[in-house]
């Protein structure tokens, strides 16, 4: 914790020093940015934060559920597993901006496009991560499962889902921040509201200190929501392990 605070202080010092060399409309100082943040605290700010994170949360939960379905279904047979892995590996290689463009053409600008872009980014990444987790299942247990002819339904609920749940934490850390970044990008290009869209507004009105203010707010709210979800997940895991 001490180290993190030290790095933050060093970063702020560096930012302050750099801002001395530039005009305020190019690089506002941390103090100017802080003043801008206080100035911005009103309904619009909270609305933007709420809209963005509601989208992210909804798209994220939906994406994780779809990923769990695909990863569990990939265990049904080797061929299905290979097919799902190939498709997901192909999807993940395409730049997000390409999907965003396609969704803008098909759906138009707005919430659905943003959520669809988040989903198409998260689904292949988490599916491949979950498949990698399931590949670590003990071979002996799998052999026993085969020999006892355990039905697929039981394998899902006794073996695959608990395994995914147990190892979900690192996948969550990776995929949530990925989803957050994509959300801001998608809102910036195809949003009608939300934090990403606020950046566009501030850019057009050349309100650079408030633009920096939104970047700071995004950073802190992003960290806050990630920590909040982490705490919820760890609590559930703790309760689950005690049952």
């Amino acid at each position: 914790m001490k180290l993190k605070i030290t790095f933050l202080a060093l970063f702020l010092c560096l930012w302050q020093i750099l801002s001395l060399f530039f005009e305020n409309y190019v690089l506002p100082s941390p103090y100017t940015t802080l003043l801008a943040i206080f100035r911005m605290i009103d309904y619009n700010l909270f609305n933007a934060v709420f809209v963005s994170f509601f989208r992210l949360f909804l798209a994220y939960v939906l994406s994780v559920m779809i990923s769990i379905f695909f990863s569990v279904f990939s265990q049904f047979s080797k061929n299905i597993g290979a097919l799902i892995e190939t498709v997901m590996s192909s999807i993940i290689k395409v730049p997000n901006i390409a999907y965003l463009t396609i969704f803008m053409l098909i759906i138009g600008v707005g919430s659905y496009t943003v959520m669809a872009t988040i989903a198409i980014t998260i689904i292949p990444a988490t599916t491949l991560a979950f498949i990698a987790i399931l590949k670590q299942l003990d071979e002996n247990i799998l052999e026993v499962t085969e020999i006892f002819e355990v039905i697929y339904f039981k394998r899902v609920f006794y073996l695959y889902l608990p395994m995914i749940f147990e190892s979900f934490y690192p996948v969550f850390q990776m995929s949530f921040s990925l989803g957050f970044k994509v959300m801001v990008m998608a809102e910036f290009i195809a949003g009608m509201d939300g934090l990403g869209y606020k950046l566009v507004e501030k850019k057009i009105s050349f309100n650079i200190d408030e633009l920096f203010g939104y970047v700071v707010i995004m950073t802190f709210t992003g960290i806050f929501f990630q920590k909040l979800l982490e705490v919820i997940y760890l609590k559930i895991k703790d309760v689950h392990s005690r049952i």
Binding site: D138, N140, E143, I147, F148, V150, K154, Y158, P162
Partner: peptide, 24 residues
């Protein structure tokens, strides 16, 4: 019908004893 036992532990660690039984 065949039952099997290996040298390695093949119980599902996070399941209860009864659930391990009900798995098969």
């Amino acid at each position: 019908r065949t039952g099997v036992m290996f040298q390695a532990d093949t119980l599902i660690e996070n399941l209860s004893v009864l659930k391990n039984m009900l798995y098969v």
